[in-house]
Design a protein around this nucleic acid. Structure first.
Lengths: 350, 350
DNA sequence: TTGTAAGCGTTATCAC
DNA sequence: GTGATAACGCTTACAA
């Protein structure tokens, strides 16, 4: 069934049906009703493909996600869902494209097949070839995260450097003198993953500013690695009294490791960082952390892209989000009997 | 840049370029090379929209996901990524459509806008109006999960009933006499969510078969709810020695609650269930569980849909997956001093 | 107020 | 072996 069929049944021309649908030119009430009745009866909806071909735009945006192999973080997942939601509200559809791995074909289809009006690129690396490819293709795009040379692109990101620095200052204010940063996985750090590098920078800056002692360690994105990581850290640095992290998936392991050696949060040890809400709330006690506003960020990314599609030549905008630190109960004053742990008092090694 | 431009530069007609691309009719080696050179030089790729319009198919499948508000489980997220991967391998694109909430427009666009060749429907309820809508539209689709009256649709699902029954039998074999099922959230149960209902059925069946005593409780999909749920359960049923669950997000809380009352897994208490691999492995000790093969399932769903698109009139196929139970170390013989807990020996209420 | 017709970029049928 | 040309279903000048 097509627009011609509707026109025939309503006894009008195809253009009148089209104009009834779009409202771009007045249609006599009688005719309009007759047409609308036929449309309702047959459940007609214009063919999106034909419309896209004619209009030269698809009302669809591409979303490039990390490949399935790499364990998606909760934040990423929420982001994908949030994007579909936000796009849906703007009457846009979302075309998913896995990236990395052996999915170059899929990315190429997106970039050069005229299937989308614009692209949102997740998981940007400090050096990212996809950015060049999109620029060369002249396709509007917005990055979640930004490259090292970021002037020429539009992006939205979380201010990991600022937030981690903020948490370190918070710990310093509470009297902590030696803190650790539990970073993302070694692989991600090695591949130039932006958040990992910027967290590191912010950490170093805040340490220097407050004259604190600090250790930064990479850590796999799972509970087991988190546990192992913190255990090692506690052994090597008995005077450590706090950690901050951007590795939300490691949080359950961090909690477990502290539990294993009998350290109570926050009286014996403080934990803080940047994490999606569920992780922060599931921590025991609830985590003092900057809550990553994934849904809000997804919405802003879509707006940014829509804006860019409408005006591709305006100078690129950048949004750096710095959500406030939610004070919950996982941070407290540094323990005064700071070296108790060094003397070997562990409750239960299990 | 379009096919005409390529034709002009290569000094041939548009059809020759088209045939060079598709290989559907022989082209002289010389002409072919000339054309290919121009294509490579300009980086030309045919316009997917025009092709779709002409061919009457879009090479795109729709994926209907739950709305962003509802906390996505790890399994669902992995499923989305796995789908994009599997589709990409088949040179198909994936159009995302949030469902539920106020996203009817998006679903309608998918169903009646001729934007996709077929649809994969996630999170099917026992009674699901979207199924009828898709059937009425005559659009091929595959459900992840199945409705109560499932004969007329093609689906793939996990055999929650069978798997939960299996875990109960396993516990019975180990001597447990009273076990609990920690189900999904009350809201999901109330809304007729299939896995929750089928887990319940399998649980009841296995209890009856083995003459066990059992309690089934709904539980929110997060660690906090899991902890609360198990705490309540342990108080109310001091003779409980094991739980099985399909609520992976509750696992960390279950672990925490057992820890709180000083129960050691598996010597004092056994835990098992159906869960995505990361959750099972992050449990301490690693969880004896049926590992949900989300990636594999996504691949099978795509194949099923591709098959159905090719032959829409064949009788619908159903795939019920029953992954083997991976024996890890969270289940053990029922404690012989079974009522120790009832006598009030808790280590630490913290 | 409505109708006619061109054209979006492809593919595929027909002719040569 | 290759070229013209008619669709695919829609939107939108341009006519009437």
């Amino acid at each position: 069934m097509n627009i011609g069929e509707i026109a025939r049944r309503a006894g009008v021309s195809r253009s009148t049906v089209s104009y009834t649908l779009s409202g771009k030119r007045p249609v006599a009430p009688g005719t309009r009703k007759r047409i609308q009745d036929v449309i309702d009866e047959l459940g007609y909806r214009p063919n999106a493909t034909a419309r896209a071909l004619k209009e030269g735009r698809t009302r669809t945006i591409g979303l490039v996600i990390p490949p399935a192999g790499s364990r998606l973080t909760h934040m990423q997942l929420e982001f994908v869902a949030g994007m579909a939601d936000a796009a849906g509200r703007a009457d846009l559809d979302v075309l998913l494209s896995p990236s990395g791995g052996d999915h170059d074909r899929s990315f190429e289809r997106l970039v050069s097949g005229s299937r989308v009006d614009g692209v949102i690129l997740m998981e940007i690396r400090l050096e990212d070839p996809r950015v060049g490819r999109l620029q060369q293709a002249g396709l509007p795009f917005v990055g979640i995260g930004h490259t090292a040379g970021d002037r020429q692109m539009c992006w939205i990101d979380i201010d990991y450097a600022g937030l981690i620095a903020h948490t370190v200052r918070h710990l310093a204010d509470l009297g902590h003198r030696k803190v650790a940063l539990v970073n993302r996985s070694p692989e991600l750090v090695a591949s130039g993953y932006g958040p990992a590098h910027r967290a590191r920078e912010g950490f170093a800056a805040a340490l220097a500013e407050r004259g604190l002692d600090g250790i930064e360690v990479p850590c796999g994105d799972d509970a087991r690695s988190g546990q192992e990581c913190l255990r090692t850290l506690l052994r090597a640095h008995p005077d450590l009294t706090a950690v901050t992290t951007i590795n939300e998936a490691a949080l359950p392991g961090i909690q477990q490791a502290l539990d294993d050696v009998g350290l109570t949060v926050p009286s014996d040890f403080s934990v803080t960082g940047v994490a999606a809400l569920p992780w922060a709330e599931d921590f025991r006690p609830p985590l003092t952390a900057a809550d990553v506003p994934a849904l809000d960020m997804a919405g802003k990314a879509v707006s940014l892209l829509v804006e860019r599609i409408a005006a591709p030549l305006t100078p690129p905008r950048h949004i750096l989000l710095a959500p406030p630190i939610s004070l919950r109960s996982s941070t407290g004053a540094a323990p005064t009997h700071r070296l108790a742990r060094a003397s070997g008092q562990v409750r239960d090694g299990r």
